[in-house]
């Protein structure tokens, strides 16, 4: 499996993280440290662009919820965008689509942030 690469784009208040590859127990700590740094820096509006994500472990998804919760406490959110059907299936199976906001695309997520979310 390909190691996950993470690319950060800052767009005003928004932080867009593009994930490429597979997100599992071995690659998750890197995303975790990036998200931690964003949070520490007061960046609470985060979009994870999952369009190029090939695999995500359920444990990694679970850990994302903690970040989403903390972001919401600060008036922000962590939204998922551009999920492949396979990854959406994992999210749905775990019922995480009821907790995390799942958007069709980064633009869609961007708009939802714009409308006060």
């Amino acid at each position: 499996m390909r190691e996950c690469s993470i690319e950060l784009e800052e767009k005003g208040e928004l932080s867009i993280l593009r994930l490429d590859g597979s997100l599992d127990a071995y690659s998750f700590p890197r995303l975790e440290s990036t998200l931690g740094q964003l949070q520490e820096g007061g960046k609470h509006r985060v979009i994870l662009d999952c369009a190029a994500l090939e695999y995500v472990s359920s444990a990694a998804l679970g850990a994302l919820i903690g970040f989403a919760r903390r972001a919401r406490e600060k008036g922000g959110d962590l939204k998922l965008a551009g999920l492949s059907p396979k990854i959406y299936n994992i999210v749905e199976l775990l019922g995480f689509n009821k907790i995390l906001e799942v958007c069709d695309s980064v633009e869609d997520a961007d708009k939802r942030f714009g409308s006060g979310g």
Partner: peptide, 23 residues
């Protein structure tokens, strides 16, 4: 990503954490 620096209480500690946590 190094946006927390100006807000960090102890800058040297923050820098050390950045270096140590970034693989």
């Amino acid at each position: 990503v190094d946006t927390g620096l100006e807000r960090a209480m102890s800058k040297s500690q923050h820098v050390e954490n950045l270096v140590k946590t970034r693989l």
